[in-house]
Nucleic acid binder design. Sequence first.
DNA 1: TGCGGAACTATGTCTAGACTAATCCAAGTG
DNA 2: CACTTGGATTAGTCTAGACATAGTTCCGCA
Lengths: 242, 242
Amino acid sequence: MTDRQAAPNSRKAQHIVNEVRRRIIEREWRQGDRIPDEADLAVEFDVARATVNKALQLLADEGLLDRRRRAGTRVAVDPVRKATFTIAIVREQVEQAGMAYSYRVIAQRRSPLPADIAARLGLPEGRTLVHMRAVHYGDGKPFQLEDRWINPHAAPELESADFWHLNANEWLVRNAPYLRADLSFSAENANRRDARLLQTQAGQALLVMHRTTWNDLGPITTVRVAFQPGHVVGAGNTQSRG
Amino acid sequence: MTDRQAAPNSRKAQHIVNEVRRRIIEREWRQGDRIPDEADLAVEFDVARATVNKALQLLADEGLLDRRRRAGTRVAVDPVRKATFTIAIVREQVEQAGMAYSYRVIAQRRSPLPADIAARLGLPEGRTLVHMRAVHYGDGKPFQLEDRWINPHAAPELESADFWHLNANEWLVRNAPYLRADLSFSAENANRRDARLLQTQAGQALLVMHRTTWNDLGPITTVRVAFQPGHVVGAGNTQSRG
DNA sequence: TGCGGAACTATGTCTAGACTAATCCAAGTG
DNA sequence: CACTTGGATTAGTCTAGACATAGTTCCGCA
């Protein structure tokens, strides 16, 4: 009964992860220290080496450990600060905040690519793509402003889609799986249009997100999202599975 | 000879990851479709089930697949958009840009916690912590401004008497391992002090990062980093090991 | 008809053993 | 002394088989 091994089967790897993390946090193993090799730990925890391997790989992915063949595993000197964050679908985000979601397309037309957007997409300037601007609202108040370019060549079914009535955001998520994505954040002073559409004043600092996706046929879409003033995006810990 | 299995041993799981991803991108398997179960795929790829399991778990972590016991694996309807970004150490970031790094501590002293910071840390308002402000420079130009609060109680092994004389940065290095971290981005108009220290004008939109870390003893530190105007932080794809 | 439980099935996790591959290290060579 | 070569060590990956667990489905009973 004193034996509260907690998880007799299932979850041994997680137990090892926790225990190793504890030893690092509590300085039993200090930064730069070599830790016992997989075989030793397997004996200590009474598990198969593969289980130890799984646990340590997870910690290495998190940046807590440095692993090298022959050299062994050591506690990372500069624990890399990683964070993962998930981009929620706007509607869910708004509804989760208990607000009523609505969406308005401001403009949609085919236009030649300006230079800066062309550079993002890696397409020649002047090429004609679909350009649309839309605002997402929560309880009638502007939540975010979206300025998007879509490349129909990368999404064949797109020609038939009518973004005046469909939410482009959601259509793309569901119908255009991507292979690679670029994402970045920056801050910009609201220009006149931003200010008007977000119902704020020109000059207001806005958090801006740029996102571009590609599949095997080329760039799919690039979007500039300007959030309402004061918006905060948060990222969680670097926890994968577990 | 037509057999260009590429990776005869080592890397079979990765091969499966790539192949499954390809089938999804090319719509062989569409959103919501049930895909063959692990046993079948193991036969198809001529590997052990554990190998298929590893591959599919990775894709599920990325959000491309939804897996449930008994119900099987299906292509996610709303591929979750995840991104991981790594916060580089400032010095490395600056030097990688080919600039000379320097660093100046503007102020370091003990101060009572203001309400907003106390809330971040989960400590009572008015508690005395170490407060420091510093600027990081690249080639003499301000790169980022750092406003940090440090909780010495999170480092038990340090005599509190010693602590007050320690360089705060050094202290942080010694206390790097943390259990949990919070990270967020927002945009703020530069106030007078921001503007002065970053050599820009008040009102300029600044990208601001807040970061707080905890270990088992409580909050370690919280920091507000204001980046130079125009700074962009980028996040990579959701690729784990590969 | 409705409900509880039994049977089933696909994934989750682990094991013991094998082989591979990256390195570090030391010994030998020019 | 620098360079090459071979051996030893440690992580990386895979396999075949086993059992655990969570859902689904369906059947019998009230």
